[in-house]
Design a protein around this nucleic acid. Structure first.
Lengths: 119, 119
DNA sequence: TTTATAGTTAACTATATAGTTAATTAACCA
DNA sequence: TGGTTAATTAACTATATAGTTAACTATAAA
């Protein structure tokens, strides 16, 4: 389809199997068959390969090689892109607390922290 | 397809047209035709209706009625779900700074803030 | 050198998604 | 009443996605 990176990332995350694979990888590197293990009953090996390709194209994981294994590991950057994107909408979920001044206070703390770090 | 809510939300966010609509709505309520305006050259009215339905099913927006208009507004909750989900991977994008102790320090600050608020 | 393990590729199917045009519903306005 | 504006529905098309089975490649190990 030739979509932008952020769209590819969101699309990759829109599948529970793929999100489960990411949870597994957040606990450390794993080979394809290790990642496949929880889905073996429901899904064939080529299906797993395809899911991993989607994650790879989104930049969420990368595959190495070690003998006949392909150790997979997480890449942080696309997660940061998502976090930055959703941050823009923070006030809408914090509005549930129904206190805008509380939100503004939080923002001030955040800015202070940011400036503090840069020094 | 009958997918879980988080999957629906990620899928809804995987399209640039829909994300642009959310940006517009983050600046305030808007009718369908107001939302359609930036896309009128590239896209028909029914296409817009469909995009809005996807956002609505994901719970990201809700539509009201006022005479012949359907004022749309953002809902915060699904954004929070995304933010919470991605938070789990924070250390992977902060690892780029390559200082785990710095990450652990941030976590401590966060926990203190949380506990402080609850009191 | 054969066999087992790990993983991918090819070819195919079913369903979902993103769009189209034409017709329809509903409210307002002159 | 008839026309205009706002938005949706219906019917259809093209492409993408998620899965399948069968065949293949590459390394390890007997």
């Amino acid at each position: 389809m030739n979509r932008d990176q952020l769209s590819l990332t969101f699309a990759a995350l829109s599948d529970p199997t793929r999100r489960a694979m990411l949870v597994r990888l957040s606990k450390g590197e794993a080979s394809v068959s290790e990642l496949a293990k929880p889905f073996m009953k429901e899904m064939s090996a080529p299906a797993i390969t395809k899911h991993l390709k989607v994650l790879e194209k989104a930049g969420l994981i990368s595959k190495g090689r070690e003998a006949q294994w392909r150790p997979c590991k997480l890449n942080g950057e696309p997660f940061k892109k998502i976090a930055d994107w959703v941050e823009h909408y923070r006030k809408f979920w914090e509005e549930s607390f129904n206190r805008l001044d509380d939100y503004l206070k939080t923002m001030t703390i955040r800015k202070e922290k940011k400036n503090g770090r840069k020094k």
